[in-house]
Write a protein that binds this DNA or RNA. Structure first.
Lengths: 346, 346
DNA sequence: GTGAAAGCGCTAACAT
DNA sequence: ATGTTAGCGCTTTCAC
């Protein structure tokens, strides 16, 4: 089989604005204005330039433009871990919203190399990127310093509220209230021993969700005995381990509110292996409403995060911060309790 | 509550190389070399420059550098749809591999706006980005033209083989063989009426997987009667619809090979609603090995895609294409059949 | 309505 | 071993 190696000769030099200017018989500045659709240009000239650009396959060099404008139309999305299924959905909407606002996104997941995020802080400070979108509650330490030094940087965080970051813009839901709603629902179904499978103690959302659980129990006159709180984590595996802890309990809870959907998946799978039926023997609810949660057997009762709205609003906030030097502010969006079979009394 | 609006005065002018040069008492070129760790610089000077840069919070402006170097160290990852759970996992590894190679990634999901991808083709041609990673088999039409014109562009596709793109580099698995392996496994379990829930007819991988099914049936002397092929799609919902088609069949198959895991999820959920047990009444297998596939009830037999390897290798190929002007070539990686309860004779 | 010219911040060839 | 200089491709005064 003959190896076809395209020759370098094929690669015509990349056309610049000067080339287009020559072809169209105008100056570079006219080309710039014509392409940007800026005022004092005759329609005829604009046409001619557009035509020339198209034929030459011309596109503006983004780096030259960014250098000149000191604006890159680039935002960085910092994501802890794409393996958490909340993020892809969020990211998809962020990408779309950014595109609609005229921005492109760079992404970097910060979970693996903690050193890495510092580089991006530099980029922001050096003006190479216009703004940063923090998803979840992770914020590079270096960035935290700058924020607290009072510098006005275009940063927005979304998905989770983060106490340490209250100086910056954010989009969130009321995590405590949402957790409260789930447990309130379980209590109204008639469950009396409602346990909580808690998330990592380091996560602000886990703390908030636990608090919502406690408040709802109190309001329903149910006790939050020591037995009913099971320390776990956010992963499927954590849910599985939670199930074995529950097995050892003197009195089995009749319902469990999990701190997120993933741990609920693991919990349900392991409980089933123990021969328990959900919800007949034990009701389960989660938090997040991942896309698979209604494919589960049984479909999972959970809280739907308004990820689409969060993504869109956070991008719009960031744009305002960048372009209009807007003030930092925090928006709390409405959540939605999604009741499915896993929590219903049969 | 007093509104604290940081003053613009706080934003000291962003330091440039010239600033660092002044502070360190050297010239800009020395700073450039010192920071880049390039040869003839005394250790003492390097230290002094590094110190000055650090104190001033200096970072190189990526656009100035890219403009000068005509290299951006930026690769674009084109993703059809992040809602397909194959992609987040792939993307995560792409990001990490790119970072390790000194590249940052821009992402753009192309599912919504077909017009959008053209902009990125322009970016590539204009030299604003160094290369493009195509995930799955989607390739912007404009790009296709350029490829076929024989121009040597740094492009790599990964995840799915794509017949129309055989001129460019790629990383893939043998889809036909993988599907064959699944069906071979089912046949060896003793299933006699092995149906196939097919993916979209427009998808090359769906065609390949169907072919593997047919070949395996033939090799085992089983017929691929018309009844046994159920046209569906890749989404959960498609699987659900497949289930109702199966319900109407004169003879129910005893096993079903689904073209991907997601459709298998929907199929299983719907079959259960019909009162069928998996695998006792009907065995199921999928393709992809999504992370939830072993949480499913029953855990799903499937094919594991080497996503991590694919991501890493495709980035390395792209790097070679960019930096070493390497030749285009295609690598086919090994897949793995993952046998779980959903396909086992009890 | 259009052109000439300056300069964004950086790197590398060349000079010392 | 270090400094001087030119120029990457673009936008935007400022002239005409």
């Amino acid at each position: 089989m003959p190896k076809r190696k395209p020759t370098k000769a094929n690669d015509a030099r990349i056309p610049t604005m000067a080339d287009i200017a020559r072809i169209a018989g105008v100056s570079a500045s006219t080309v710039s204005r014509a392409l940007a659709g800026l005022p004092p240009i005759t329609e005829e000239t604009r046409q001619r330039v557009a035509q020339a650009a198209k034929e030459a396959g011309y596109a503006v060099n983004r780096h030259a433009r960014s250098l000149r404008l000191k604006r890159s139309k680039l935002i960085l999305v910092l994501i802890p871990n794409l393996a958490n299924p909340n993020f892809p959905d969020l990211l998809m909407h962020i990408d779309q919203a950014a595109y609609d606002c005229g921005y492109d996104i760079m992404i970097a997941h910060t979970a693996v190399d903690p050193h890495r995020s510092d580089r991006y802080v530099d980029e922001l400070l050096a003006g190479s990127i216009d703004g940063v979108l923090l998803t979840a509650n992770y914020c590079p330490p270096r960035l935290l310093e700058y924020i607290h030094s009072g510098r006005h940087l275009p940063i927005v965080r979304t998905l989770s509220p983060t106490p340490s970051l209250d100086g910056i813009s954010g989009v969130q839901i009321d995590e405590v209230k949402a957790a409260y709603d789930v447990v309130d629902h379980l209590a109204k179904q008639g469950y009396k021993h409602i346990a909580h499978l808690g998330g990592p103690t380091t996560e602000a959302v886990a703390i908030a969700r636990k608090k919502g659980w406690e408040m709802a129990l109190a309001d329903h006159g149910l006790s939050a005995s020591r037995d009913l709180f099971i320390q776990a984590g956010f992963r499927v595996e954590d849910g599985r381990q939670g199930a074995s802890k529950i097995k050892g309990l003197a009195r089995r809870p009749d319902a469990i509110f999990c701190s997120n959907d993933e741990s609920a998946y693991g919990l349900i799978a392991a409980l089933k292996e123990q021969g328990l039926r959900v919800p007949q023997d034990i009701a389960i609810a989660g938090f997040d409403d991942l896309s698979f949660s209604n494919v589960l057997d049984p479909p999972l009762t959970t809280v739907r995060l308004p990820r689409h709205e969060m993504a869109e609003l956070s991008v719009r906030k960031l744009k305002a911060l960048i372009e209009d030097d807007a003030d930092n502010d925090i928006t709390t969006l409405a959540h939605e309790l999604v009741v499915r079979a896993s929590s219903l009394k049969s």
